[in-house]
Amino acid sequence: MKFKAFLTDNGVSLLEKRFLPALDKMGRICHLYLTREHTIFLHNLLNGDGIQSIAQFRKEALFDDYRISSQNDDRIAFAIDLSLLHRALRSVITICAEFSGSHAGSGGASTTNRLQIKLVKKLPPHSQQPMPFLTFETKGYKSAVIQDVPISKPLSRSDVLELQAALDMAQDLPRTLVQVPDMNQLQNFVDRMKHVGDLINVSITKYGDLHLQISTTLITLGAEFRKLSVIGEQAEVPVGDRDLSAQSRTQRAIQRGDAMTVQVNVKHFAKSLQCHLAKPDCAFYGIGPQGACLTVIFQFFIPGTRQADKSISLHCRLPILDPGSN
């Protein structure tokens, strides 16, 4: 089992500034799954009923000179603590920056202090048992700095298969997706809404409406966003519905089969909005087939264009507490 690659500058900034802070909010521990073509960060796919998040990068998005081999079809997976990974990466970057600063005049510095990442087994201090680590290594002019991030034992063949199966299962797309108008504003709103209740009803219509509602015995608090862009199945708003209240409009859309409602934990919903720390260019919410989950898909554009960058993908699936009356 071998893994060795060099992180590119772009890869470093993607991880350090954007993805690691966002993924850390999903949960400190995640699985890192490496294949011949992809690097994938996975939360809660094998265990737990928490929010699932899947961040997938094509190897070129993060690395160059990427080498992986294992007896399990060149696939390796292990659990890793994201805050430790983030810390190690940050510290390595500072050192890198210092080196390139001091070598600015001498030329060729950029090639000498490349950031290598690899899997190793080492004997930690005061221990008889070698432990696996993900190691970052920067070679400077005179010295090298090594950061070891402890990881779990690599997953067994059957666990990797299970992880792959769960990953395949998590790829089903909702039939209708609506675009979130303003992530920051929505996050702000949901953070305040959290004080009022624990469960949030999310309704999505084919007309491009996103309706959020918290309802307890003492209070009903909701927000409706209309005329959002829709991907997938869409429909025209029936004329008579335009002047109704948000609740009755959603009710009628559900009866007509033009909408779905699910109930999720408001904390999960708020967490899913934290992904905007990864600075996506847009986000879409949709309800999975048969109301199986609430999915949020983030899109990243190729810098300077409006074209989706296919090499990066991030989506979350929120477990459903009440499938609603769809």
């Binding site: 709103f189 608090l221 909701g222 927000a223 005329k227 948000a246």
Partner: peptide, 8 residues
């Protein structure tokens, strides 16, 4: 296009 409502 965006409405917040509450019933207390």
């Amino acid at each position: 296009n965006a409405c917040i409502y509450a019933e207390i």
